[in-house]
Design a binder for these strands. Structure first.
Length: 346
RNA sequence: GGACGGGUGGGUGAGUGGCUAAAACCAGCAGACUGUAAAUCUGCCGCUCCUUGCGGGCUACGGAGGUUCGAAUCCUCCCCCGUCCA
């Protein structure tokens, strides 16, 4: 899922996203609640209509902001009290409120509010985050089910989120508690926040072992190109990541040969496409020299073209992974990707 | 011809006796980025030597002299640039 926090995947139009084959994007509860406001979006016909995106949308709950806006919030059992990063105003985000906002937005998949903590975390902190996440999940589920049932609208899904930091038993416990609540899909959160990739994989594996294969399993916030296949191999069905879009804006392009830091002088007169093996519209038309020039000049087109390419690259990886699964050589694909990216920037 | 104002590292531009190889910003070079407070952030950015260290040497604030233990900073002359007056 390309990430479109504020109801836009930065640098891409919805038309471009459709052409790239994105089937679902992620938007953010906390950000859209602050601006333009979920009631505004509701009055405008919901998020799909508002942003003119006919395909699926998953809304994150604001749980990640619990983690990333640490200086601006205070957590209690009731919920999270935020100071807006926009105007400093205070807001209380509870599990019910997060659900309500997402119902107003009308996303296809809503996430429960969870407590995402830093890694490494002391066991005590991880335990209480799991306890709180479970309690919040229950409240969110109740609130959500009551509303969706009452409206006769069961189109909207809601996912629970497994926490537990880097403790396998807590991950297991978290997953089991969520299973009891019963969600149509489950996410694994609080990973790829600084711990080694092996740990991310280990925790993901522990969680997916508990979660039903027949329901969607979503690993939140990952990953690097060479890591994605590993997660899929562990049973993960969906992922989201800001990396392709953010790195693109920062002049880091992903290619079949590894990363290309396009601002480097060495590309000043490089007439090759970003990735000779890439079939995206940018690679078919423009040279590295031109891209580098656009970045050097601070042109907005640089971000647009780079984002287009990176999102294409990520979606293409997913396509290759699906193919590899069909042919039974996912492991081979995975190690090939790792080898290409091991060397660092090409 | 006269009166003021000014000439600082690639650029803009601080700095009016030692804490100054010289602020800050830009440009340049390199790096980071994983449920987006991110078109952001970080490092380097005179030359040179090595035992790469809050290391040594050299060069540097228009030019040439001078004052001083010490000068981008003070003095003298000169050369440029801007504005105004004749």
């Amino acid at each position: 899922m390309p990430v479109g926090t504020a109801a836009t995947v930065k640098g891409l139009t919805q038309g471009a996203l459709e052409e790239l084959g994105a089937e679902i994007i992620l938007a953010n509860t906390y950000h859209l609640y602050l601006r333009p406001g979920h009631e505004v979006v509701r009055r405008l016909g919901g998020l799909h209509q508002f942003m003119a995106w006919p395909r699926a949308i998953l809304t994150d709950s604001g749980g990640f902001q619990v983690f990333s806006l640490s200086e601006l919030r205070k957590i209690t059992d009731e919920g999270v009290r935020f100071r807006s990063h926009l105007d400093g105003s205070e807001h209380l985000l509870t599990p019910e409120k997060a659900a309500e906002i997402q119902l107003a937005l009308g996303s296809d998949i809503a996430m429960v509010l969870d407590e995402c903590i830093e890694t490494p975390a002391p066991r005590g902190a991880a335990e209480s985050a799991v306890a709180r996440t479970t309690a919040w999940a229950k409240r969110a589920r109740d609130y959500f089910l009551e509303r969706t049932t009452r409206n006769g609208d069961l189109e909207q899904w809601q996912f629970g989120i497994v926490q537990g930091a880097t403790f396998a038993d807590l991950r297991r416990q978290s997953a089991r508690q969520l299973l009891e609540i019963d969600f149509p899909g489950y996410a694994v959160g609080g990973l790829a926040v600084g711990e080694p990739h092996e740990t991310t994989c280990e925790m993901t594996g522990v969680a997916t072992a508990e979660l039903p294969q027949g329901k969607l399993r979503y690993l939140m916030g990952v990953g690097r190109p060479e890591q994605i296949a590993d997660y899929v191999a562990l049973g993960i069905d969906m992922m989201d990541c800001v990396l392709p879009t953010r790195a693109a804006r920062h002049a880091c392009l992903y290619t079949s040969e590894g990363r290309v830091l396009i601002k480097n002088v060495r590309y000043a007169e490089d007439q090759r496409p970003i990735d000779p093996a890439c079939s995206c519209a940018v690679c078919k038309r423009y040279t590295r020299a031109y891209l580098r020039h656009l970045f050097a000049a601070g042109e907005i087109t640089a971000a647009i073209l780079a984002t287009h390419h990176n999102v294409h690259f990520y979606l293409d990886i997913m396509g290759q992974i699906r193919e590899a699964i069909e042919f039974g050589n996912l492991a081979k694909f995975s190690s090939a990707m790792r080898a290409r990216y091991a060397a660092g920037p090409a």
